[in-house]
Design a protein around this nucleic acid. Structure first.
Lengths: 141, 141
DNA sequence: GTAGACGATCTGCGCATGCTTACTGTTGTG
DNA sequence: CACAACAGTAAGCATGCGCAGATCGTCTAC
């Protein structure tokens, strides 16, 4: 019987550690973790409704609203009424938002590199690839 | 520039997914997640103080107390005053506790196997090994 | 056109969390 | 012996969370 931590426990610890390690990066850009999550989700393209955006970032749609307002007030994103269905508000990054999230990501990549510094490059690549696939699968559920 | 999720986001999603997937296993043993975490932490040996135990499971010591009382009432662990320093209560698994946690772990290993089912065995071994090492490092901080 | 569905928003409930304070019993140090 | 430090316990506070309900404006199907 192999002797190791439960995967769930390992994921939980690493989540905590990453949140803590990334906090200075986000604070340097005056962003909360959820702000970054939202901006990051919009990088692949606008969200056609706020409800859809709430779903992709796994956050309650009512709790998402203050975040969107803050980010819009800072000029990082725009909410435009959808002319085809005026119930919807399309959420899209602005140029400034794209810059901020790119800068954040660069900082976060450094933190990640630090975490993985002691892992041999070959194993590191496999680890990251598998993690990415598993995350996709977990997200799809 | 490689196109992938942030590690932190991946860890967070997988944590959620594992908590959800393991819930039926724990419920079958009438355990909360924290109950399992406590019992699991005690598997390697008794905790010489409750504060130390709280620290290893990363839980506030005052919040740990009701958990310990519940588990002790169910006969899964024992809190014995330390004769050498009667301020301390040594927390140790009972035989029943050891059985329950072993049974839980077996169920959780199945859930984990399910998660990793689509990963090729060689990559799976590397992934699990690296994850385990990273978790240890994150925990030590 | 009327009814039902849906998106955005607001408000509030219940729950879990980490922290803080306070109290008691115990230890050991000066 | 007195006093500071520490473990265990209890109680309270502020925060953040998901979720439910209500409202309003907007579609869409009949």
């Amino acid at each position: 019987m192999e002797r190791r931590h439960d995967l769930g426990a390992a994921f939980a610890w690493l989540t905590r550690a990453m949140v803590a390690a990334e906090e200075p990066v986000l604070r340097a850009h005056e962003l909360e973790m959820w702000d970054y999550a939202v901006l990051s989700a919009l990088e692949d393209g606008p969200a056609s409704t706020q409800a859809e955006l709430a779903d992709t970032v796994r956050r309650d749609k009512t709790r998402l609203i203050p975040i969107l307002e803050r980010l819009e007030a800072r000029g990082l994103l725009r909410r435009t009424p959808d002319p085809a269905d005026r119930r919807n508000r399309v959420v899209a990054l602005t140029g400034a938002g794209r810059e901020v999230v790119a800068s954040c990501r660069a900082g976060i990549r450094e933190v990640e590199a630090d975490l993985l510094a002691d892992v041999e490059p070959g194993e590191r690549a496999i680890f990251v690839a598998v993690l990415d696939r598993l995350a996709d699968a977990a997200r799809a559920r």
